[in-house]
């Protein structure tokens, strides 16, 4: 049984948060540079230039890319042969999150659903995070982290389609979500689509799909094709950067299905769409 120290996890998470909220994810940077080259609308091009300049300033000054430093989202895969010494893994993630947000001068954005009071004194600075745990073979701990802002979460949607709706229904649903969202989620966007599983799990997959590097192909050729088709359809909407009109609205569509077997119930076709703004802040570490 491999042993990992509690403090090492806290530090790794703290560092990952401070780095990734000030350094635009390299795949997003590349995709935005590409969009800047291809954008045909003058206004949207000017917006893309500001977004790229912003990334440069943020990186040089270690200043948050966006003031909405989000909820902290974690997908954690824990090896069956690894043990945390000195505390629990969950506590380490909480502590690392609080340290990262506080010491990185990031915004505390968690609040009580009803009173809307900030939770920073009652629960902790930007706590609690949202964590999905999975147990896998091996002796490593893999942690994926994203800072997920409110603007793009607010327009994300989930539904359960009738099986007969098929691919056509999926394309229409995603297109409608992006169309209704318009300027609000800060386009250009990456669109995570979770298909199958159960109602709730489709949403989880749509969020996890956002961790895939932009520019990588879906290993399932049929889904790779569907991703391209959805992207093409969404870009016909003409929303453009920050909704000001243009050709580059969706930079990539990432589909995730329930494995094995791209499973869902014989009676349903769950579909969820999680929207990611251009300020993509995610990171991945293996301990």
């Amino acid at each position: 049984m491999r042993v990992v120290k509690y403090e090492d996890i806290v530090k790794a998470i703290r560092d990952m948060i401070i780095y990734s909220t000030t350094h635009l994810a390299p795949d997003m940077k590349k995709a935005l540079e590409e969009a800047y080259k291809n954008e045909k609308s003058e206004v949207s091009k000017a917006v893309l230039k500001q977004i790229l300049d912003n990334a440069k300033i943020a990186e040089e000054e270690w200043k948050p890319l966006c003031q909405d430093t989000g909820l902290a989202i974690f997908f954690v895969k824990v090896g069956e042969d690894v043990k945390v010494e000195g505390g629990s893994l969950k506590d380490a993630i909480y502590e690392g999150t609080e340290k990262g947000y506080k010491e990185g001068y990031l915004r505390a954005s968690t609040c009580d659903c009803f009173t809307r009071a900030n939770l920073k004194d009652k629960i902790g600075y930007n706590l609690p995070p949202v964590i999905y745990f999975d147990i896998v073979p091996g002796d490593k701990i893999e942690i994926e982290y994203a800072a997920k802002g409110g603007g793009s979460e607010n327009v994300s949607r989930a539904t359960v389609l009738a099986p007969a709706a098929g691919k056509k229904g999926i394309i229409e649903f995603v297109k409608k979500v992006i169309s209704d969202a318009g300027p609000n989620p800060c386009p250009p966007l990456v669109v995570g689509v979770g298909i199958g599983g159960s109602f709730d799990y489709a949403a989880v997959m749509s969020k996890h799909a956002l961790f895939r590097d932009i520019g990588t192909k879906n290993p399932d050729p049929e889904l790779a094709e569907l991703e391209e088709e959805i992207k093409k359809e969404c870009n016909k909407l003409g929303i453009g950067a920050m909704g000001m009109g243009g050709t580059e609205t969706v930079l990539a569509v990432h589909i995730e299905t329930f494995q094995p077997g791209r499973m869902c119930h014989i009676a349903s076709l769950p579909v969820a769409v999680n929207v990611q703004c251009h300020s993509s802040r995610h990171a991945h570490i293996t301990i």
């Binding site: 206004v43 016909k236 003409g238 920050m242 909704g243 009109g245 243009g246």
Partner: peptide, 24 residues
């Protein structure tokens, strides 16, 4: 740096910009 979205004549950049670049 800002962009005029709604002017005092009732124009809306979000609608007009989108219409201009929309493809059927």
């Amino acid at each position: 740096p800002v962009v005029v979205v709604n002017d005092c004549y009732g124009n809306d950049l979000y609608e007009e910009g989108r219409k201009k670049w929309e493809q059927q």
